[in-house]
Nucleic acid binder design. Structure first.
Lengths: 130, 130
DNA sequence: CGGCATCCAATTGGATACTG
DNA sequence: CAGTATCCAATTGGATGCCG
């Protein structure tokens, strides 16, 4: 006979919740993934060189690795144009686009609770638009 | 004279957004932090041994490190009772409690989009993952 | 009971140079 | 233009043992 039925229920809930949370964090928690995802969210579509030039603090290898992971996780798509010079475009997939409210949620909490945060009106504008 | 005013605005927005997102992820993105946070969210208050016994897959050192980080980031509080044997209780701070909607958001997206996810009440399958 | 110290393995991050 | 390859540093994760 099992005691603590309600505790077991609580346990199942937290296991489910923490699993889902960890899964999401695994996908978007990479060092540069938020920046990549936000750029693609706001720009819609970007070439590799655009991404690279807009993120000067990340080395090419790391950027490629992050892009490959996002691609394997089906969050972004990579389209190669077979021309010379080469042209590769990245954009969010449907799954990636579905992350929008999640990213928005994370951004808002972080912006609200980050010390020494920027208090200007840009953040509110951002919150409205997203 | 600056060209591309809209592009600059876009740039500011994404910087703000990705900064806030990265900040939040830095706080909750630790390997075991989702589990800890969810436990404290659902249980309200837990002793160290409770946490440890409920998370058999994490070593003590790592668990302590994660708890220390959460404490330094003001997400959880650590209360020591000066008695013998020692007694230490962990609970969420107000800031930690404010993460609830964020964690819910992450959990829901992960649960909805995780492949091979548990669709019904299979507690056995879940037990394996913890 | 609730840790900390030590030591080690694994993963991740990164600078640089080179290529089809 | 859009990457690879190589090599190396840093961070993280973890098992074990000891302590007040």
């Amino acid at each position: 006979m099992r005691k603590e039925t309600s505790t077991n229920l609580e346990n199942e809930k937290l296991i489910l919740a923490s699993c889902g949370t960890s899964y999401t964090l695994d996908l978007i928690g990479g060092r540069w993934k938020p920046q990549i995802l936000w750029r693609l969210l706001l720009q819609g579509c970007m070439r590799y060189s655009q991404l690279k030039n807009s993120m000067p603090n990340v080395s090419e290898r790391i950027l490629i690795l992050q892009l490959r992971e996002l691609e394997q996780d089906m969050l972004i798509s990579r389209q190669v144009y077979p021309e010379v010079p080469p042209k590769v475009e990245y954009r969010l997939t449907e799954l990636g686009l579905s992350l929008k409210p999640v990213l928005c949620c994370l951004s808002q909490w972080g912006d609200a609770n980050r010390p020494n945060r920027v208090v200007s009106s840009d953040s509110e504008v951002l919150s409205e638009e997203l």
